[in-house]
Structures are given as structure tokens and as C-alpha cells.
Simulated assay, not measured.
Amino acid sequence: MTDNLRRLSAEGVAIWLDDLSRARLDSGNLAELVRDKEIVGVTTNPAIFQKAISGKDDYNAQLRDLAVREVTVEEAVRMITVQDVRRACDVLKPVYVASNHVDGRVSIEVDPRLAHKTEPTVAEARQLWWLVDRRNLFIKIPATKAGLPAISQAISEGISVNVTLIFSLERYKAVMDAYLTGLERAKEAGLNLAEIESVASFFVSRVDTEIDGRLDKLGTDEAKALRGKAGLANARLAFEAYEEVVASDRWKALAAAGANPQRPLWASTGVKDPAYKDTLYVDELVVAGTVNTMPEATLEAVADHGDIHGDAVRGTYDAARADLAALEQLGVSYDEVVQLLEDEGVEKFETSWNELLDSVQKELQRLRP
């Protein structure tokens, strides 16, 4: 059942797990996935931590100690999440070494309540980088307008960044520019560019969910024919934009100085619509030099019945543009959709974070002597 995963890796796609919990660490499950299922990285987000921690006994011992110390709930949540991420970094360290520091990465996100604040985002990125204290860490910074200068600043200080919540092609181009700006500053400061890594997380399934809903309301044959096409078209055109950047003189100068490319990462690859094949956003986004981060259910589906048939991205750009143009002709506004998805993405992560704070606060109160 792992042949498909091996084939995917052989095509140049790094397979990352979009999940983390203390139970997964304590049981050795993460190590097993690294050993047996081609997993070479881990991503987390506030929703993942909220699900992992809330109502689970795995964290009781640490929660009890934190309660005794009478720490704030914010500190408690950070100590808990940092411990899980640090342990995951240690599990992935052999991959980090074997891949020449490209993979073996684990991501932790800045407080989502800071998404529209540049300086606090940079300050938290520095703190998390220091707290986890592992070179194979990624700090996740959202691709909001306020996040862009924070990305450049973090990169300029040698902090490796996973840029998250990217939905639009225009914003993705701004993210790549922010990365290059950060590298140029790092070079001027005398940092070793080879030690700085970054990925740009381009969200896929949420685009289809929102646009398909609008197409269903139209109900025409033309609308029905476009269902399930927007997410792939958007991602494929993002890769075209990436190719344009890595072909530029600006990038070539940085690469000559030892810089690493900011790999596109396909996020939100779990299929939301049961009418679609559950491996759709893996099978159809195969292209070398990318990352696909999957929830475990998608990982198992790919292992069981994925259809890995080589490069599924290059050569599709004209068709992708035609699909997005057809949506506009039907009155489905691309700009409106991607802005809505960014706003909702920030709001959802903030909601998950607040729910996590609430549940941890209750546990601290219960365990405090």
C-alpha cells in the first residue's frame, strides 16, 4: 500500500503530515509514518492543536505542573504546543540531515490574533524560534498584508518561514517577493543563505468549496461543468508564477549566493466534497519541487488508491486560465472569493485558538491547588 507514496516521492513531491498530537508522539506513530509512509515533514495550525489538546488526558501531567506554577493560559498553551513541536522536530531530524536540510521540517504558527499586526508577528516569530530551538523548525506566518513585511523581516534574521493562508495568485506573487526581499537583506547582513528555508502554503480545497457553492446556486449546465475545477486551476497557475520567479535574474543572483527556493506547498488537500475522488488534490498536483501536506485520511487514501501519473501541472496553464475566465463570465468573482477565503481562514484559526485557550483555562483552574 505504500507504492503510491513512494511513486509520489520519486516524482519530487515531499509528503508532509498535516497533523500532530502528543498521543501521536508518545505512541511512536509519527516515527512509524516517517519510516513506513514517506512522511518527511509535519504541519500544524491552531485547529490541529485545539483538536489534539481539548479533552485529552495526554496533557494532564504538564497541565498540572503549569497550574501549580500559576502561569497565564497563553503561556500554558505555548509551553504545551512548543513541547509537541520540539519533539516532532527531533523525530524528523534524521530526515532533515538526510535531505540536506530541505525536509524534516515541523511548522508552528504565530498567534492567529496577530494576523493583521506586523511588529507583534515578528516578535512572536523570534520568540517561537528561540523557544523551540531546533533548526528544522518553520514559523508559520499568514499571508495577510500585514504578514508580508513580517515574512521579509523574519527571513532577513535567518528564521525559516512557512507562509500560510495563501489563496490568491496576486498575494502569492507578493509572498515570493517578500521572501526574496528577506533573502537580500540576509545577504547584506552576512547571513548564510543556505541555512534559510521557506515554503509557501497555497490552499486548494477551500477554493472549490466556496466556488462550487456559488456555481450550485446558478444551477446552469455551464456552471455545473465548472464544479471542482477552480482549486486545481488556481494552484497550477501558482506554480506557473513560481517558475517565472525562479527563472528571474533576481532569483538567480540569490541562488548563486547559496539561497534555497521557496517551495510551493499544497495545503487544504483533504477533499471536502464526497462527489470528488478523495485523492484529487494529490493526484492532480504532482510536480517536482513541491510539498503536499495531507491529513492522515488523505495520506491513507493515496497509499491505497492514489493515481500518481507523473507531472500533472506543467502544460496545464492555458486550460487553467480558461477555467478561471469561464467562472468570471458566469459572474463568479475570483477576487471576491479569494479575499473572503483569506478573511475566513484568519477568523477560523482565531476561533480555534480562542477555543483552545478556553479549554486549557478550564483545565488549569481544575488542576490548580
Rank of each mutant, 00 (worst) to 15 (best):
D58P: 14
K224C: 13
D212H: 13
D133F: 06
Y96P: 01
E284D: 05
V110E: 05
A225T: 15
V360D: 10
L215Q: 03
V175D: 09
E74M: 04
A23Q: 04
H116V: 04
K145M: 02
R236H: 14
K229D: 07
S268E: 05
E344Q: 05
K51C: 04
R236I: 00
K362H: 15
D335R: 14
V163N: 11
E350P: 07
L327P: 00
D19C: 03
D177R: 08
R24H: 06
T72C: 03
Q339T: 15
R22Y: 02
V13K: 03
A52V: 06
V302Q: 07
L340S: 10
Y242T: 10
Q329N: 08
F167N: 08
E197C: 06
K348N: 12
R227N: 04
V360N: 05
A14V: 08
N45Q: 13
D278N: 14
R24Y: 14
A247Y: 06
R321S: 15
V73R: 08
V245T: 12
P369E: 03
I166G: 08
E284M: 09
R135N: 15
E157R: 02
R69G: 05
E222Y: 08
S27Y: 08
G310W: 14
E344Y: 11
R22H: 09
Y172S: 11
N136Y: 11
E157H: 02
V97H: 04
P369M: 11
R134A: 07
A61C: 11
R105K: 14
R366C: 07
P369D: 10
G231T: 09
V175C: 15
D278G: 07
A98W: 15
E210S: 14
F239S: 01
E157S: 04
M1V: 10
V95P: 06
R7A: 05
Y172Q: 05
H309C: 12
I166M: 04
P149K: 03
E300S: 14
A320Q: 02
L30Y: 04
G147C: 02
E342P: 02
S107L: 14
E342A: 02
R69K: 09
G55Q: 10
D84K: 00
P142D: 13
V337T: 06
K229Y: 09
I151D: 01
A189P: 14
R69M: 12
A225S: 15
T118Q: 11
L265P: 05
A275N: 02
R236D: 00
R135T: 06
V346M: 13
I308D: 01
D221V: 07
I53T: 00
D311P: 08
T72H: 10
H101Q: 10
L357N: 09
V271R: 05
E244C: 14
E296Q: 04
V82A: 15
D358R: 13
V77R: 00
Y242P: 05
F49R: 00
D278F: 02
L183E: 07
G306T: 01
S21D: 04
R78G: 10
A123L: 15
D19E: 14
A326P: 01
D318N: 12
K229F: 09
A235Q: 09
V91E: 09
A67T: 11
E342T: 12
R250E: 05
D318H: 09
V13E: 02
L128N: 13
D304E: 03
G345R: 03
A115N: 06
R263N: 12
